[in-house]
Amino acid sequence: MSQSISTQEISRTHPAKTYNKNWQKVKAAIEGYLYLLPSLIILTIFVFIPIVTSFKLSLTRIAPFGNKTIDVGFGNYTRLFSDPDYLNSLKVSLLFTLSTVPTGLILAVTLAIALSYPLKRLSWFHRLLIFVPIVISSAVTGVLFKWIYHPVVGYLNYLLSLIGIQGPNWLSSKDWALISVAMAVVWRQLGFNVIIALAGIQNIDGTYYEAAKVDGANLWHRVRHITLPLLSPTLFFLFLINVINSLQTFGEINILTEGGPGGATNTMLYSIYYDAFVGTPFRGYASAQAYLLFILILIMSFLQFKGFGKKVHYQ
């Protein structure tokens, strides 16, 4: 504010300088945009243009080889809602989110609390073991768990057999496939979640705890009434990120189950990939699905900020 006033003052007295000042401003703006330019170019090519083209695609049906197009208006969208496979994928996505996000967050917060209090002196090596999945790509996780779940030579069923349990057919049984994939995803994301939660916990001022201790609060009370409320912004952030991540899980599904058996792990995202790129591609239909997913994520983010956001306790 004060700056603009001073500019005006100067402008009244020194017209030549005004020009100079304005030019300075323009130059500063140009400079700013030039800094932005590299990322703008990348974003335009890989994000903005595809957003527009995929919307155009979603209004058409395109032959798999791309040289014949039929305009269908919003036909792809209306059809999605009568397609039992797509409705199933909505359900699968919901179940998948419900089984990964709460589990992942509870595990992460428990571990983070453990790491900051009772296990504070844990060696760097053990901490590393918890964080290490963070550097593993989803494809590698998929391959790793494929071996763990293998029905004939897998470790999981071998270990279960040692304690006398006959393990299920993890990946090819409709009841277990989604849970199996969810466990792999929770494991991979755990490192990231713990790091963020740990950072949040360590940011909490120690004086609160001291005061609580003076009042005779035990560990549970301290966690319940100090740690969790003050951690809520972090938790909110993690919750959002995890929901979006779970909706966008691809690598593990592709490698472990390919959406099967019988669509049991065919999430909304995998369904897009499948319709666009596998077998007989129908890109218009896939684009319509992509738009629905986009709108869904948008709505959810909005609701989460609106509803959830108010309850978050910022320090």
Binding site: H150, P151, V152, V153, N169, L171, S172, S173, T257, E258, G260, P261
Partner: peptide
């Protein structure tokens, strides 16, 4: 055995 959609698990 019910090994699902696979080309390799059956070999094992």
């Amino acid at each position: 055995p019910n090994l699902g959609k696979t080309w390799t698990d059956t070999d094992a």
